[in-house]
Write a protein that binds this DNA or RNA. Sequence first.
DNA 1: TCGCCGTGCTAATACGTATTAGCATCTATG
DNA 2: CATAGATGCTAATACGTATTAGCACGGCGA
Lengths: 348, 348
Amino acid sequence: MTAPLRRVTQRDIARMAGVSQATVSLVLNNRTDADVRIAPETRDRVLRVIAETGYAADPVARRLASRFNRIIGVFTYEPAFPSGSRDFFHPFLLGIEEYAERVGCDLLLFTSAPVVDGRRRIFHQDNRLRLADGCILLGREIDGAELQRLNGDGYPYVAVGRRDDAGGPVPYVGADYAAAVARLVEAALRHGHRRLTYVGMGMTAESSQDRRQGFGAAAATAESARQVSAAPGAADATLDDLLADGSTAAFVEDFATAVALEAAARRRGLTVPGDLSIVTLGDPTVPVPTDIVFTGFRIPREEMGRQSVEVLTGVIDGSAGGLQQRLLPCELVEGSTLGTPDPAVDRP
Amino acid sequence: MTAPLRRVTQRDIARMAGVSQATVSLVLNNRTDADVRIAPETRDRVLRVIAETGYAADPVARRLASRFNRIIGVFTYEPAFPSGSRDFFHPFLLGIEEYAERVGCDLLLFTSAPVVDGRRRIFHQDNRLRLADGCILLGREIDGAELQRLNGDGYPYVAVGRRDDAGGPVPYVGADYAAAVARLVEAALRHGHRRLTYVGMGMTAESSQDRRQGFGAAAATAESARQVSAAPGAADATLDDLLADGSTAAFVEDFATAVALEAAARRRGLTVPGDLSIVTLGDPTVPVPTDIVFTGFRIPREEMGRQSVEVLTGVIDGSAGGLQQRLLPCELVEGSTLGTPDPAVDRP
DNA sequence: TCGCCGTGCTAATACGTATTAGCATCTATG
DNA sequence: CATAGATGCTAATACGTATTAGCACGGCGA
């Protein structure tokens, strides 16, 4: 083991080439402004020494001196790994990674952010946000107070998924849930469904609100359009509720709940979609094994990742005018769980 | 939009608290050495101002001044995303992420490294390795010259997967392929197989060498133990070759090749494992759909990721003595493709 | 009274780069 | 031959933090 030799610096290069440190920096950055002139021989000499030594500028010092780092931060607003939802977030990361590579940025995952009260916190004692030029926020729910603080600090960021204003507009790249749900509702109406039920997970997350709003708007002409809440574990109770209401189509926010509901229906001898149509409203957030292809839609996760980087770079260099909020369309999935309801019969 | 307000610095805090910048730094770092003393009242005053302003030290400046960054770099030595192998590498990343979180480090993905001649390069014009305190290297094949350079520079790194020396020992966390393959060969011998064939992908990667070595050592007592090379596309030719040789068991390095081989055998009316046993030597590196559970082993990818971070932190702070090379055991998979060979019959 | 020590803090400097004002030197021009 | 302008480079400084030598002050013992 040799002693950790000191890093080669611009000073060393300068000494070797017989110039000043400033000249090395100018050559390195290929500055050719009108008021910065380097003789070709000098430039070559410096470049030769750089090549010989294999010198590379220290990015940390560079960042301190100038303004940017070419680093994009990624903050995952979910409890620690390993968690069931990690597969759900992976495609976002792939898109982010792909676009970051294209624009020549490195990606900093803020794995060091501590978990307090079951969720990650951006702001804490030893906040490291500034390592990156800007940050992408991932997660089902994002604390509005933290968004507000980011806005206040003028820190460049983009949320993946639409977010309500928080002390100003929040830049985001989201999925157009409202439109996707509306199209599914319309499809159900065309199939002859008249009593629809939205089976949701909660009310707070923007992604839930958007789905509910799309449902409510599109189902306005139906005979009945209710919204209830349910969890995967309560599938039987949910099924009872649907049957009691006479609903023929369930729009289920959570994929796992849809799977459980279908299984419960089958156990009772009901057919899907004959006795009950089940529509899912997005990809599984936790892994659920099933052989059935549910009718529903797909969230353009990779594309959202890509575009979030695109928007972020715009926010960082200030070139993003009003284009800081985007909603991407979701692709509908033609599954086997939405169909024409059987003529009403007395059900047990 | 407000003008991008200047960052709050220690100077600002110092001014507000009526102390010097140095004092702020000392308070912030909770220094309580014998020769550094801060009166409790002063400390409280500074801390109060810090809390009020929400100040957080700039990690970049901190890194420039001190030595460490609490950033672990991850270099993926594969061509750009999207590539088929990304799912193979995901579990490594999960392990890395998990352990990084535990030790409070952030993760820097070097997505900016350019691809030259079909592979990523660590060293290039605008080398950013120094952003991180150390680096984890991922990839099937890693350029020995680059490892040598890392060793020469004294840059802390760890390879995931065993690597040959390169101007010195290479720190790594690998999988013990030799032992895993040897156990599978022994199982085949116990089943009565006498003519074995290793179906490989190449000779250069260390992971291939280790498997071949384990095969060769354990199969020494067999009547015949050959090694051939093959690709998934040439499954029929490979099958011909196996039958001509009279091999009853194929040890297939590449998962996709194993799947193709089984399909080819089935098309010819052969049974697996009756007519031919097929053993796989690791997880799929590209996604291959199959319903069959192949006998083989599982690479402890998440654990390798975790331990690579552990080793790296040791290398960085110099506390890792001789423990810089680890081989982890692979878990055997009891599949349905290794069995007792049918009594030899004339095959078409 | 002097020296000594402990206490609490600050001034100065280093880290490695980018930027800018400006100093020499040389050439062209009147 | 004085001067203006172009050319090629450097000195100085900023970025924000960590570290260290050392200053000022008060109390205490001799």
